[in-house]
Design a binder for these strands. Structure first.
Lengths: 205, 205
DNA sequence: GATATATATTTGTATAGTTGTATAATAATT
DNA sequence: AATTATTATACAACTATACAAATATATATC
């Protein structure tokens, strides 16, 4: 059993996204620099993860061009019972943006925006550092928290790195649904908190 | 009172320099090797000092990069109803009567009642199975939830036994403060949920 | 349109430095 | 004598930086 290192957990994440069909055969993966920013690690750490995927035959790199998903994935040694599910893109989940690289505090977040309902949201997010300001740019002047779901999880190595806690430490996952004035959902924000250092307080008010 | 050891005095020195503003939040400390040279000790002794500073949240280390001074955010303004704040291990519990009762489902709870303010509450609890009815017996006809605090923890073996999960699994701890009509606290209830099986949903209203 | 040419991107390689972990040995304390 | 603190050494994992090599893309030129 291999020790859980950073590059291994990154490789696992990418392998999972490949298996889920998030990248199709022949597709180009994000550049090493982009992946490094996404996971908040050095480019070499991503390279090690990619190297392990390449060794397993899942991807192959072309110098100067990029890293590509192998057309015919090699035989899965587990047999014919192994099936992978397509990632069912639920309604309006076209645009997804990760801002891991920007956050270096006691919380991690990832947001999903309905691009069909909010045209130009991606460009606005590129320009603005704040989600609120980006939403204002595309016409959503105000939004309120419609629902917050909370659950406890264990920190993955990558989460642990960014939250400055040890892997396996308890984290608090918050999934918040924000809606606009008309009640239409405008953002689905996931936030992870270091459970040992943070307390969430809910007051009726 | 901790014994005065080498690493403790080194930690004290560094903590003093941090407090004096010699290193600002975000700054990188000298490398462990440099600190070891400065104090004339082995690198491991410095590491022990740094570890204690890290545990206290003053610094955090990034493998390969260095040791950095932590910037501690104090509050997370996520909305009017939801606030996150640091868990400062504020003790200060008054004389309490404890009653442990266990539910054979996915949650454990333990309540604290102010006996001085609610004479006879113990007897009422003995007689009644419901906390609400017991409170009604001692004159608290109605009470409302004034505040709920949530945090993630790891299950102790005992909790794991009752929640039917494995020790070390993530659990969600909820501390709810219930107040009577006049705003006086009548119950402090702690509940543990199996984080892997339970999701708490917070909705306005 | 075709073809060079320049420029920016992207992967490959090399080197050095830093923290994390493991093991063992030595000195100090009780 | 036994436990704890400190030292010593070696290696693993990750970061930082720089540069080379191949590719992609736009631009200019014919």
């Amino acid at each position: 059993m291999p020790r859980p290192t950073l590059w291994r957990s990154i490789a696992d994440t990418l392998r999972g996204e490949l298996a889920a069909g998030q990248y199709r055969p022949g597709d180009r993966l994000p550049t090493e620099a982009q992946l490094a920013a996404r996971f908040g690690v050095n480019r070499h750490t991503v390279r090690q993860a990619l190297a392990s995927l390449a060794e397993a035959g899942h991807v192959h790199a072309r110098r100067g061009a990029g890293v590509f998903v192998t057309a015919r994935p090699t035989e899965y040694p587990l047999g014919r019972r192994v099936r992978f599910h397509q990632n069912l893109a639920a309604g309006g989940q076209a645009a997804e943006r990760r801002m891991l690289s920007l956050v270096r505090r006691a919380a991690l977040y990832r947001s999903v925006f309905p691009e069909a309902r909010l045209p130009g949201i991606l460009a606005a997010l590129e320009a603005e550092a704040s989600v609120t300001r980006a939403l204002a740019r595309v016409g959503v002047a105000d939004f309120t928290r419609a629902e917050t779901r909370l659950t406890a999880k264990l920190a993955t190595p990558t989460q642990a790195l960014h939250l400055r806690i040890r892997p396996g430490a308890p984290i608090l996952r918050s999934v918040a649904l924000n809606v606009g004035p008309g009640g239409q959902p405008v953002e689905l924000g996931r936030t992870w908190f270091a459970g040992e250092r943070v307390t969430l307080t809910v007051t009726p008010d």
